[in-house]
Design a protein around this nucleic acid. Structure first.
Lengths: 248, 248
DNA sequence: CGTTACGTTGAAAGGGTTCAATCCCTGTGG
DNA sequence: CCACAGGGATTGAACCCTTTCAACGTAACG
């Protein structure tokens, strides 16, 4: 092992996110081939854009560390937050049709990203059948995510939205091998409010209530879920069986 | 011309929806090849399901005539309407990842559908480069549609939602070569309400107001837009330039 | 011609927003 | 090292839009 790679040069093979990210269901050899087309760059600093609406599309991006906010603006300049992308998530699907990014992607914290040049990915998928299905999976996740977001906005009151958001984040962390009841979340309450279609004031009041009720505490950037059971009760979940992988 | 084909046997080549549907950007010969894999069946009667959540996925569907409602239910049994599919629209994207339909698709009126077996479509797309991009376009449209739905739900009040819905329907009809200011819409107000995250009562009141203000009349299944300008004003649109293709 | 589901209209209640003041954390510069 | 600035978070009170509940009207279907 003669080359010492810095942390942002971890290969797919050695990446802990394989189960969440792209290579799911690929064999060792194919992961190697995927690895060869991946372009890794120094981390993005907080507040920097990975891409912006109007940028031409060249590649999909897989998050290795950090958080990315995908957002846009309405005609009258109000911000819309479409989602938050965690390590293992794939970003850039919005540009697949028009070959131009439709939304803005901003790092909310120091964020490392793997770049997957789309042309090379396509060439590769001609030889790796599982890969094209994998691409469909990633896209499909994006579609379902949008639908779940709509569902949240239509049929849930403010309490339920906030509870569902925290619960989803918990599941996503758990799915990545972290503790589901205690994690760091570098997302402003303000951004969560916009994502949930609420005002920052409302979110603040609800978090205060959850804290007082000893359900969840979210102070600074640390989330503690004190009572998962009651959190699920707020959402209206039936919690017979513990498992259920909801992602983004 | 020795074989007389009934109306639901129109070939892609002779279909008026080419610009809206799949074959966009394919040459004459490729359309022919696509045509050969398309499976056409007798129309679905009102209330019949094209597919239901849990059905295994075999094919994408292109609407030739009629309307399809895509919907599901929340954990506590409330209906969620994800969208309405008009002639030229492609349905079934929700199943691309899991190979199983996630939602229910019901005909709201007598509806003709072209079935595009997915395996055959994939084989074909290996030889027709434009076709795979075309598939991406269709998927991408689905993603963007979901995001636009969310945007509607987050940042618009009831008046604006109803106005936007009618305006979008108008654009979609216009895009298909029909009059944009006067069209038939076989969608229950109740379903629109669910789609917009409102109650039927609210939608009813708003439509009454739009009628009284001589902006839009929607009685029975006929929509008349009396004043497109004021409709756009309700939405908050800037209407310098008339064009802008918003689809679904 | 009756039944059923959809649509309409009214009045009251409630959940979330709005507006405004204050607090608090972080980062910056003296 | 401390003071200050600025953006985000918090808290309170009034308001308003949408929902809810209930009653009635009406269109479609057998």
């Amino acid at each position: 092992m003669k080359e010492v790679k810095s942390s942002f040069h971890v290969s797919c093979k050695n990446c802990g996110l394989q189960k969440v990210c792209f290579p799911t269901g690929l064999n060792r050899e194919d992961v190697e081939r995927l690895d060869n087309i991946v372009d890794r760059r120094p981390p993005l600093k907080k507040g920097v854009h990975l891409f912006q609406a109007g940028d031409s599309f060249n590649a999909l991006f897989a998050i290795r560390a950090g958080v990315i906010k995908l957002y846009s603006f309405t005609d009258n300049g109000e911000e819309i937050v479409h989602g938050f992308y965690l390590p293992g998530d794939v970003l850039g699907i919005d540009a697949l049709g028009s070959r131009m990014h439709q939304y803005n992607a901003m790092a909310l914290d120091t964020t490392s990203v793997c770049t997957l040049p789309f042309e090379k990915l396509n060439e590769l998928s001609e030889n790796i059948p599982n890969l094209s299905q994998q691409i469909l999976n990633v896209i499909s996740k994006e579609v379902l995510d949008g639908r779940m977001h709509s569902e949240l906005l239509i049929r849930r009151n403010a309490d339920q939205r906030v509870a569902q958001f925290i619960y989803n984040m918990s599941e996503r962390h758990r799915h990545r091998g972290y503790a589901g009841s205690e994690f760091r979340l570098s997302i402003l309450h303000r951004d969560v409010a916009v994502y949930l279609g609420l005002t920052p004031e409302t979110v603040s009041r609800i978090l205060a209530k959850f804290h007082a009720d000893e359900i969840v505490t979210w102070k600074k950037k640390e989330v503690f879920i004190h009572n998962m059971h009651r959190l699920q009760d707020v959402i209206g979940m039936h919690h017979e069986c513990e498992k259920q992988t909801i992602d983004r």
